[in-house]
Design a protein around this nucleic acid. Sequence first.
DNA 1: GGGAAAAAGTGGTTTCTAGTGGTTTTTTGT
DNA 2: ACAAAAAACCACTAGAAACCACTTTTTCCC
Lengths: 150, 150
Amino acid sequence: MGNFLGSHAINMDAKGRVAIPAKVREELSQICSGRIVLTANADEERCLLLYPEPEWETLRPKIEALPNMNRAARRLQRLLLGNAAPMELDSAGRILIPPPLRSYAHLEKKLMLIGQGKKLELWSEERWYAWLDESSGDDEMPPEMEALSL
Amino acid sequence: MGNFLGSHAINMDAKGRVAIPAKVREELSQICSGRIVLTANADEERCLLLYPEPEWETLRPKIEALPNMNRAARRLQRLLLGNAAPMELDSAGRILIPPPLRSYAHLEKKLMLIGQGKKLELWSEERWYAWLDESSGDDEMPPEMEALSL
DNA sequence: GGGAAAAAGTGGTTTCTAGTGGTTTTTTGT
DNA sequence: ACAAAAAACCACTAGAAACCACTTTTTCCC
């Protein structure tokens, strides 16, 4: 399973394609031959999630199985399943972002690709930096987190 | 495990590389053959954290395991994992700071490297001195700290 | 409905910049 | 004065970004 770390500034061309950075590309071609699934993020941050296909396949049944009499669960299903786009890196290591995902995450030219362990996140650069600046410490922490010593 | 103490004024070259001071370099090559992980600091001070790889590896699972339906936990994950850059000192004992980390910590030419026991901190010199001036002692202390006798 | 035009998607090539590695010179400390 | 380390410098390479040419699909008008 992948271990994606670090962030990369990349840009989208006029046709909506983004070139995956060489290091990430290598890892992707190893663990899933470049076969990935791109979808929308469900929490309040409008970014995209990029899963290696095997990782997505472990996740998908869990999402499908959620009790969908619950509003929050329905929301998660609609967002994640309804936006999921399986794709493959092209010969130059690029992917084409489907238009609905482009607009969901407000992607323009400048993007940031953020490693998050098993998956990656794709942000509009502007939104990423805005998020970095906003709200630092005023949220409730889970106990595991309060005990951390970094 | 490392025991880093003291501070060093160092500078970054035009390409974004910094030469680690000889003493620190020695300690790093002993405990991790120069293999380190550089990442962003999560608290309000915008500096970088430099971990010897083994020390980082004890930390990483704890961060990944945080419940990411929680806002504060997500923030920590995005900052620490999303900025983590594994690297190795080059033959001249230098490291290249990835551009996103350079801008996160506002690193220009003059930097300060601060020993913090198991890890090191890397600051913009300007910000380091500004922080020294601004920070006073009138904050709430945890009980373990109140019990200290310096 | 057929055809033309426009848009979107695909693939490849070229150019340029940022990263890399190494060397030399200067400074510092002993 | 000497040795070691830091800083400046230089040459080379690989990756990314811009560019260009071609194919397919959609749309709009006749």
